[in-house]
Nucleic acid binder design. Structure first.
Length: 323
DNA sequence: GCGACAG
DNA sequence: ATCTTGTCGC
C-alpha cells in the first residue's frame, strides 16, 4: 500500500505573514488573525504561537479584542504600550482607545483553515457507516508523542485477545500545530507512515484504533475517519475527552455506555472504564457505533484505554526517553 | 457574563 | 500533547 500524499499548509509561517501585514499606527486582534487564517476558533493557537514564536514580530500591534495589551513571553505590557504610542496609537490604562479607530483586519489571505475545512467536508462525504468485519482478529492501535517539534508515531498490532504481536515506530518533523477539529493535519502524516512501515514489515490489521475521534466531530471527520477514508480501511476513534455533542454520564456503571448525540444524530458512545474515567468511542470508517463499542469493550482490561491503544501510548511515551 | 473544542 | 510543583492514595 502506497503512502498517501497528504499536504499540510505551514500555518505558523502564514501567521507570521499576517502579523507583518499590520501597518505602523494600526492594531489587530488575536481573533482577527484567527479569522484571517480561516477559523476564529483558532484564536488560542494564534495567542500561544505568537507568545512563543513571535519574538522578531511587531507583536505590540496585536492586542486583545478589548483593546488590552497582548501577553507574550518577550515584552512587558508597559513596553508594548510605549511602542504603540511611538507609532501614534492612543493607549490609556494599557488599552488601545478607541480600538475601532486603529483596528486593522484587511488582510491579504487565502484563509488556509477554511480550505482544510472544505477538504474535511469532502472526506466526510465518503464515510460509510456499517458493522465492522466480524472476523477481525488483528487490531492495530495508533498513538503519537512529541519531543519538541519531532513527532513519534507508533503502530501496534494486537491479536483479538489484546496481546501485542509487533509494532513499528516512526519519527517526523511536525510543523502543523494542534488546533481543535484539525488534529488530522498534525498527526495523520505520522500515522500514514507508521502504517506504511508496518505493512512493509508484513504487519497488518483488520481494524485500526486511533487515539482521537471518528465521526464524533463538528464536521463528522475526526482523525480516525480521515485515516479510514484515505486508506479505505475500517477505523475506530477513541478519545479521552469529549470534543463536541451531548451525553449524560451521570451514574454510569463500569462497562456501561451511552450515546453521544450531535445535532440529533448519534455519533458515538461514552463508556465508563476503570475508576471514574470515561472514554468516547466513535466509528471512523467502515464501522458503526454498535460494533465500535463492542470491539473496544472486548479489548478493555484494567486500563482506561483498550489494549492496542494502551500499548501504543506506552511505547510512544517510552520512546521519548531515548532520542 | 459567556464559553468551556480530540491530541 | 508537554511542562511541572505540590498533593493524595495505595
Amino acid at each position: 500500500m502506497e503512502a498517501q500524499k497528504f499536504e499540510v499548509p505551514d500555518v505558523g509561517a502564514l501567521l507570521r505573514d499576517l502579523v507583518k501585514q499590520v501597518p505602523r499606527g494600526r492594531v489587530t486582534t488575536y481573533k482577527a488573525l484567527a479569522e484571517a487564517l480561516g477559523d476564529p476558533a483558532a484564536v488560542r493557537f494564534v495567542a500561544s504561537w505568537l507568545a512563543s514564536h513571535g519574538e522578531d514580530l511587531p507583536l505590540h500591534r496585536v492586542v486583545h479584542a478589548s483593546g488590552a495589551m497582548g501577553k507574550g513571553e518577550f515584552v512587558e505590557p508597559e513596553e508594548l504600550a510605549e511602542r504603540l504610542r511611538r507609532e501614534g496609537v492612543k493607549v490609556e490604562g494599557l488599552r488601545v482607545t478607541p480600538l475601532i479607530r486603529y483596528f486593522f483586519a484587511e488582510f491579504e489571505t487565502e484563509r488556509p483553515l477554511a480550505r482544510l475545512r472544505r477538504e474535511q467536508e469532502e472526506v466526510a462525504c465518503r464515510v460509510r457507516l456499517q458493522p465492522l468485519p466480524k472476523d477481525a482478529d488483528r487490531v492495530a492501535g495508533l498513538d503519537a508523542a512529541y519531543l519538541d517539534s519531532e513527532g513519534i508515531g507508533i503502530c501496534v498490532v494486537c491479536d483479538r485477545g489484546g496481546e501485542p504481536i509487533d509494532y513499528v515506530e516512526v519519527r517526523h518533523r511536525i510543523t502543523f500545530p494542534y488546533i481543535p477539529t484539525y488534529l488530522s493535519y498534525r498527526e495523520l502524516p505520522l500515522f500514514l507512515t507508521a502504517i506504511e512501515e508496518a505493512e512493509k514489515k508484513g504487519l497488518s490489521a483488520d481494524v485500526i484504533l486511533v487515539d482521537g475521534n471518528g465521526i464524533l466531530h463538528p464536521r463528522r471527520v475526526g482523525i480516525a475517519t480521515h485515516l479510514g477514508v484515505l486508506l479505505e480501511r475500517p477505523t475506530v476513534g477513541v478519545a479521552k475527552k469529549l470534543l463536541c455533542g451531548e451525553v449524560n454520564t451521570e451514574g454510569m456503571a463500569i462497562g456501561e455506555w451511552r450515546p453521544v448525540v450531535l445535532e440529533g444524530e448519534t455519533v458515538g458512545a461514552a463508556m465508563r472504564t476503570g475508576r471514574n474515567r470515561t472514554i468516547f468511542i466513535s466509528p471512523g470508517h467502515l464501522a458503526d457505533v454498535r460494533s465500535a463499542v463492542d470491539l473496544v469493550a472486548s479489548l478493555l482490561r484494567e486500563n482506561v484505554l483498550p489494549e492496542p491503544l494502551r500499548w501504543a501510548h506506552e511505547l510512544a511515551t517510552e520512546s521519548r526517553t531515548r532520542p
